Simulated assay, not measured.
Amino acid sequence: MKIANIDLGPRPVLLAPMEDVTDIGFRLLCKRFGASMVYTEFVSAEALVRSVKATERKLAISDDERPVGIQIYGRSVDAMVEAARIVEQARPDLIDLNFGCPVKKVAGKGAGAGMLQNIPLMLEITREVVKAVSLPVTVKTRLGWDASHIIIPELAEQLQDCGISALTIHGRTRAQMYTGEADWGPIADVRRNPRIKIPIIGNGDITTPEQARRAFELYGVDAVMVGRATFGRPWIFKEIRDCLDLGPGAPPPLTNDEKIDVLLEQLRINVERIDEYRGILHTRRHLAATPVFKGIADFRPTRIAMLRAETTAGLTAIIEQARQMLARRDNTQAPQ
């Protein structure tokens, strides 16, 4: 599958852009484990135009993670166009427009999924950004504002006509936020539309390799995008790729020891590439969500200590303590 001239191979699996999650360390690990494409945290167009340093730092990318996209959001044509031009100087492989974020601080101000209530402005922004930059421009959005306004079949055609190179559809409305189940039926309808020529990327509730495989087989999407299921679990891309490419002949999954080594490496990369304080903050979010430590008896005090650690050495020691607890649990559960 190709997005413009970017060849992502057959049945690509993409890492979704997520605030405070898809920092450079995490992206590099996801890429190593088989992510076909990764995205930065989403970037506020208005903050970028105002040269807010914390926002500008999000533009830092590495050649080792390519292909990589930078996603921007905003509610002004001028700000989005100027931000896209700034982003282009960071040399990503593509620019993605966020018309799907449902959180109140974004959608409530008319940006992100808030654009689903102002389609003319969404289309104007898209057209003007496409004209302003030489990079491929893609869009991520939702089915509609609420269940009474499932507009994605018509919206997909309108966005394609604006010149975008691919469209990612999250199978929920803005009103749903992240509740309920993602509905892939409308995504499949868009993919089956003979007028749609651009790649359609499905997103929503891909939490296992089998779900990714079914998304390709049942809904015919060109690619799938994985979001929340990656938290503390960058190796999910290996699990999905093995399922898609090798099936029953796939090698065994990573051991718990190997997974903990990955989490420690993520900590190291984040501290080296950001700084100790923020690197630890970014890593703690993944440690809080990782499935590796689930099922360990009396783990709550260790988890709390993990989330309060303020130094690399201290956090590393707590993770190693958790490794020992996990080993004792596994030895106890092993058949005699």
Rank of each mutant, 00 (worst) to 15 (best):
I6W: 13
P10K: 12
V13G: 02
L14H: 06
L15Y: 05
A16M: 06
D20W: 07
V21P: 10
D23G: 10
V38Y: 00
T40G: 03
T40D: 01
A45C: 08
R50D: 03
S51G: 07
T55F: 08
L59F: 05
I61R: 07
I61V: 15
S62K: 05
D64K: 14
E65F: 12
V68L: 09
Y73L: 04
D78C: 01
A79T: 00
A83P: 07
R91N: 08
P92R: 01
L94V: 07
F99Q: 09
K104W: 09
G112I: 03
N118K: 09
P120C: 12
P120L: 09
V129I: 11
V129C: 13
A132M: 06
S134Y: 03
P136L: 04
L143Q: 02
W145E: 04
H149S: 11
I152A: 11
P153Y: 11
E154M: 06
Q160A: 12
A166G: 12
T168I: 05
I169A: 05
T173V: 10
A175Q: 15
A182K: 03
D189L: 05
R191T: 06
G202P: 01
G204Q: 05
P209E: 08
F216V: 02
D222G: 09
V224C: 00
R228L: 01
F231H: 13
C243Y: 06
P251N: 09
L254I: 07
T255H: 00
E258P: 08
K259A: 06
I260W: 05
L264R: 01
E265H: 14
R268M: 00
R268G: 06
N270I: 11
L287T: 03
K294S: 10
K294L: 00
R303E: 07
T311H: 09
L315V: 06
E320P: 04
R328T: 12
R329D: 07
D330W: 07
D330G: 04
